[in-house]
Design a protein around this nucleic acid. Structure first.
Lengths: 199, 199
DNA sequence: GTCTATACCACGATAGAC
DNA sequence: GTCTATCGTGGTATAGAC
């Protein structure tokens, strides 16, 4: 089972989880292609035989990580969607949650947002058309329908509202931000909302 | 010599250029690690011996591409900087130029903006702190100094002004935009400028 | 289920003729 | 400068004992 929180104590994990967590860390630290099965074996202390017992191949590890994390993010986004009443609050909470996730689980965020999955998972869709991001777009659509957001192309509105925040998260993952990304939320959101709000 | 325009006629190219252009195409189509020297040989029709005559190794090909393209982009950005008088016009022209480049040379844009260079060029800085992007940030700084842009954190202002446009370019490169990215420029810029302009 | 040992192959890189 | 042939390494995946 994959969750969005990085668990601290490795002794509590099952072998599958140990393999997945180790792979996630190595994939994000060095990249998928710079990580060998032997590396995963060495760092997880799980033998190669066991790794291939639980996963068909190296790609299978990456796919299970990807699908599991996207699903978990999708559920988190759904939760946010249901616990706010205006598009403004929903969208702000979505961005805040992404920034918080970046702080708590940078490698999760890096793997989802940053890695080039198509290079090692050829059949996966691009991340921007996956569940959580479609949900964010849907939040924007409702905001436009109900008059909170000016009428305009939906993709433009979505990019305007979330593009700057996602860019800040990229900068954080690149290690070029002076402050942690959450500390920019208020200022970023103020700008983002001005760009699309009605009136 | 590397330029930002993708030259059409392969028979006009020198061997080095042929190798570089082929490598750029394959690196962006399949990724660096999914492209072998043998692939580059096959598609460029230049022998492996010649490839190693011109380049130290596979990484050397990628580095020459990366450095050359970033340098060329930096010069283009400098040109834009010098041929406009207000921050508004400079920044808009910068974004328009990036979108135009995306249309004319998608693989150039993809390689610069999209590829995870650190995975195969470990010593290179992240792209967001390279010449052309620092220049864009500098345009924003001057706009703030001269009162066109509201006082705020410079990184936030830069992400707000360019983040949505860069996100649209990413979407275009992912193949999920309905229209070509340049056609969204007016609407994107309208939103972006609202987010940071004074008053 | 877990492990070690190993088969197999693709790839980067080199040697050396022309 | 250009080429073909080949070498050695390192990586994925499997075999098979326990």
């Amino acid at each position: 089972m994959i969750t969005l929180t990085e668990i601290k104590d490795p002794s509590q994990l099952s072998r599958q989880e140990l393999i997945l967590m180790t792979a996630l860390r190595l994939f994000t630290e060095r990249g998928y292609f710079n990580t060998s099965i032997h590396d995963i074996q060495r760092e997880s202390k799980v033998s190669i035989g066991s790794i291939y017992h639980y996963f068909k191949n190296k790609e299978g590890i990456a796919r299970e990580l990807f699908v599991g994390l996207v699903t978990a993010m999708d559920e988190g986004m759904d939760q946010i969607d249901r616990s706010h009443t205006t598009a403004h609050d929903r969208c702000r909470a979505a961005l805040a949650w992404l920034m918080d996730l970046t702080k708590r689980s940078p490698s999760v965020m890096q793997f989802i947002l940053y890695a080039r999955h198509r290079e090692f998972l050829p059949e996966e869709k691009p991340i921007c058309s996956s569940g959580p991001f479609l949900r964010m777009k849907e939040m924007v659509r409702r905001g436009m329908d109900e008059g909170e957001i000016r009428p305009m192309d939906l993709t433009v509105a979505s990019a305007s509202l979330f593009g700057s925040g996602i860019r800040m998260i990229h900068l954080q993952l690149d290690g070029v931000l002076e402050q942690p990304v959450e500390s920019y939320l208020d200022e970023i959101w103020d700008c983002a909302w001005r760009s699309v709000k009605t009136g």
